[in-house]
Design a protein around this nucleic acid. Structure first.
Lengths: 144, 144
DNA sequence: TATTGTTATACTCTATAACTATA
DNA sequence: TATAGTTATAGAGTATAACAATA
């Protein structure tokens, strides 16, 4: 509370707080041997089913160029696969392996129980409200 | 809205949304020739006054090791200065130059008008509420 | 012994530019 | 000509490890 609130706009706060959350989240995921982007990609496929890489990158809030290395590592780890598209020979459809499905399910369950520490300064109602606002903001940006 | 909400915990959302906000914020700051970490450091000094590097890193949500290069670049750009501490010869007190003060003030003013696009999916009351929740969360983590 | 600041280093993330193959 | 995927590369951010100077 001390000091003038000099620059505390929402993009600034999101960027800085996101940096904090990112480090915490990265450390959590490291326990499962994957990175943040790998996890984001796995989640999208788990929710949406098999996808082409450009749409996949879009939904994972990544760039199409940078998703290549992520998919390389995911396939090398046996978590995902690239298959040729039925009709369009430019496309490669990305699917999860059974191991990939199992891993993302395990992580999702563990994550639900692991966010309390990070949010300890907010009461339950505030946590729900924050989650709701962030989700709507995220969806608005990702599904544009 | 389609698909099961498979993993949308707050740390996940903050990390992903923070990644989006970070890119937007970085692009905005690039117009003023500084990076996100440089800006965060300038803001902290502007609010708190001259500080030692370890406390400065703490308040800027950075690591003490990684702030060295940031301060090197800030001093090289004539935005900040490192001075010896009065009594403790281990310490180096970081201050802003008049140019640094002027730049951070200009940016703060411009940023206040530039966040509308990023938050366009929320109405004014929701934006205020989100900002409040994020600010409290950020302060709780930074001032611990 | 603990603390302040520092260097070296390696990995992840992101963006700029340019390319191949196919539609 | 436009699109899907790719490669090379460079800058920024972060973390691990180790160090010198000073308290």
């Amino acid at each position: 509370m001390s000091g003038i609130a000099y620059e505390r706009g929402t993009p600034f706060l999101l960027a800085r707080l996101g940096s904090l959350a990112s480090r915490s989240w990265t450390a959590f995921l490291a326990g499962y041997g994957i990175t943040q982007n790998q996890h984001a990609v796995l989640v999208v496929i788990r929710e949406q089913g098999p996808l082409g890489q450009r749409r996949l990158a879009e939904l994972a809030a990544m760039d199409a160029r940078n998703i290549v290395a992520v998919l390389d590592s995911l396939t090398a780890a046996g978590l995902a696969e690239r298959r040729p598209h039925d009709t369009d020979r430019r496309r490669r459809v990305v699917t999860l392996t059974t191991y990939g499905v199992r891993l993302i399910d395990t992580i999702s369950e563990a994550a639900a129980h692991g966010q309390d520490h990070f949010l300890r300064s907010l009461d339950p109602a505030e946590r729900d409200h924050l989650n709701d606002l962030l989700r709507r903001l995220y969806n608005a940006h990702v599904q544009a």
